[in-house]
Design a protein around this nucleic acid. Structure first.
Lengths: 252, 252
DNA sequence: ACAAAAGTGTTTGATATACACCCATGT
DNA sequence: ACATGGGTGTATATCAAACACTTTTGT
């Protein structure tokens, strides 16, 4: 926890640089060892938050989200998807309460009501170097199944992000941003199974995935593991991007 | 156009009551005589805008959207769907320019940079009584094909709303909010064709629509028209709502 | 040699597409 | 009577689901 002086300086800086009443919260998804992970900040003992931040006064929203995530992950050019604005007038009260005994209301940045713009991000787990922000003491990956309870409405934000991601899975390719450059079909399947939280048929998955035409199979196979060596695949970026904009399913 | 005094009063009221930097813009879709219509405001000669407004300081976003639309349409309980936040720092400059010669910057509400939360609304055309807001001189329906060019980024907002609506059509029922209580299958098909901007097969449309189980066929038929009398249908609200939350297509 | 993981293929049912036919009504 | 729009039905292709067999590799 910052000292009162530090907090005052933080609030003064925020008032000077950021738009009031507006924040961004990011649900950063990574995939590692068959588990879906989310980046979570620890402010103090038992206080967990999604990574977030504010908009500079003349900054585009997506730029701000990128900036915030660069600070938390070290990564540029993260795949980001805006998914919802959370604006319950009560949603940030908890944050205000937390600082109201320390800071005079006029000085307290968190006296503001905040609408928060939710983004979800898909990143390659291996590339991320989690770093806490000014207000927190650590930044860590948590498996989806072992998440602590989050403060404010951050659990709701996370669940909405998950729902949105699952929905997107139905008409968009997902995976390029979550997988390493090369991966095997079973590994990709595991990603889908993790996101959807259900088992898929190995053979049907492969057929369907290949039918999208967004994968290139390498000559190479993943050696070293026990059992038969699986082929390595990489995404075909051109087709992948085309599929991202055009979508998969016809619908009507 | 308001007088300077009126504008000053408007701005003072806005500063007092609304959150700064945040607005709401609504794309109100109605369907009439086989044409998709959108509500558009006329501020002055050749200046067209989507209906919009601001958030009261302690007002939930959706409540604000409802309030704004009640003022424009006379309707309560409108079907609303938040679909995107538009936040380009340049997006509201045009609005500022418009008033800068009349109002001192410090007084001018539109000096603010605004992020706008986009909602689309689906309403029964017949129920709407379009009413202009304080800043405009008229509020009218325009067919999608005969829309004037809109100011600010409102054309982009409208197009994004349309894209979202089309997407939703693929996994959600649409129509309850756009159609009168009773309607014929060809009428409903016309709605779909209008939204998608393409022809559908009469017989396949009917089969598919019925397969969703969200329609009740009435004993009655629409008499009076030329040709064979079509059956009247109404939405089965329970199933409709269930389909809204659960969606249609399996996907994975 | 065998267990476990991976590649490939087949059978079956469901769903979508493209049509054809009949019926009712106003002119 | 006939043109037009509306109700219903069928053949075919296409796709998804369920399932079987073979191949490879480490133990």
């Amino acid at each position: 926890m910052l000292s009162k002086e530090e907090l005052l300086a933080y609030c003064a800086g925020a008032r000077k640089n950021y738009l009031p009443h507006i924040s961004i919260d990011c649900v950063v998804f990574g995939f590692h060892e068959g588990v879906m992970k989310v980046l979570v900040l620890n402010v103090e003992e038992g206080e967990w938050y999604l990574p977030g931040g504010f908009l500079l006064k003349e900054e585009p929203i997506e730029t701000a989200a990128n900036r915030i995530l660069k600070e938390r992950t070290g990564l540029d050019d993260i795949f980001l998807q805006q998914f919802y604005v959370f604006g319950d007038p009560e949603r940030s009260k908890e944050h205000f309460e937390m600082y109201k005994d320390i800071l005079p209301a006029g000085e307290n940045w968190f006296t503001n009501r905040f609408l928060t713009i939710g983004y979800y991000a898909l990143v390659d787990f291996q590339d991320v170097n989690p770093m806490p922000d000014e207000l927190s003491i650590s930044c860590n990956w948590f498996g989806l199944k072992e998440l602590p309870e989050l403060k404010l409405d951050h659990t709701q934000i996370l669940n909405t992000a998950l729902d949105t991601l699952r929905l997107h899975l139905n008409y968009q390719p997902v995976g390029y941003n979550l997988m390493p450059k090369e991966f095997t079909m079973p590994e990709l399947q595991k990603l889908y199974e993790t996101i959807l939280d259900k088992k898929l048929d190995r053979r049907n998955f492969q057929r369907r995935m290949l039918s999208f035409g967004i994968l290139n199979r390498s000559e190479q196979q993943r050696k070293g593991g026990a059992h038969k060596a699986p082929y390595l695949y990489a995404f075909n970026i051109e087709n992948y991007k085309a599929a991202l904009t055009e979508g998969f399913k016809g619908g009507w």
